[in-house]
Amino acid sequence: MSDAPRKAGSRTIRSLYRRPAALKDTPTHYCPGCGHGTVHKLLAEVLDTLGIRERTIGIAPVGCAVRAYYYLNCDISEAAHGRAPAVACAIKRCLPDRIVFSYQGDGDLAAIGMGETIHAANRGENITVVFVNNTVYGMTGGQMAPTTLTGQRTSTTPGGRDAVSTGGPLHICELLNTLDGPWHIERVALDGPAGVRRTRKALTTAFQAQIDGKGYSLIEVLSPCPVHMHLPPVDAMRFVKEQMVASFPVKIFRQEGKRLA
């Protein structure tokens, strides 16, 4: 996003990147290097680029991102843990010309809220789900989440997650891809600048689909959680690139309503 070029003799100054207008000025509470901040920024950019901030209603999850309404400058409602898709569906049905997104973490979406996740997708509800997968419950101290990697250490898998007693990481995109309802399902990763650009593009695709009334879209964003990955931010980003992507392939699963192989 950039402002109009400013003339100064033959010298012009053009802005190449600005903090998105849809992002409030308050600095976030997220930990240094946390992917939520990045997703908020990209989400705000998309709201600006598509010109939909004033008719967008967001649902914040229970989790680190519950405070999204302090950062995103659009109408936002909290939802009980796991119930954001239900809240979002109702709002969209009541206000079909508004843009509605459900912003959720892995515990919210894939553990307690799995029922709501699957049924909103199965109904093909014309909403956009922004699913930030950082493999742990962040706000509550880094417990195992449905997407915790096998062998990954968390406060509730001190010896590393073992498949025998806890099962393996849960693949939401693949799961929802078996349903007929969804229009767009894509997984991206905040594993570097290219991954960020790809996330921006994916979010734009999803929100554009909703604007066009095409139906349910979900973007799963593999995201670093430095504190509970016990890594400094740069290494956490590498963890996403090397460990998470290996377990969660980055690709488009559903495009324009059609399953991709």
């Binding site: 409602s77 939802a79 119930r83 239900a86 569906c89 109702a90 709002i91 049905r93 009541c94 029922g115």
Partner: peptide, 26 residues
């Protein structure tokens, strides 16, 4: 008007939350 048979009573009350948040009688 809006009618959804929800996936559970728990989902249904949260849909009521959403509709009410949108200013509707739910």
């Amino acid at each position: 008007r809006v009618f959804i048979q929800a996936e559970s009573e728990l989902a249904a009350i949260n849909m009521v939350f959403g509709a009410a948040a949108a200013g509707k009688r739910a």
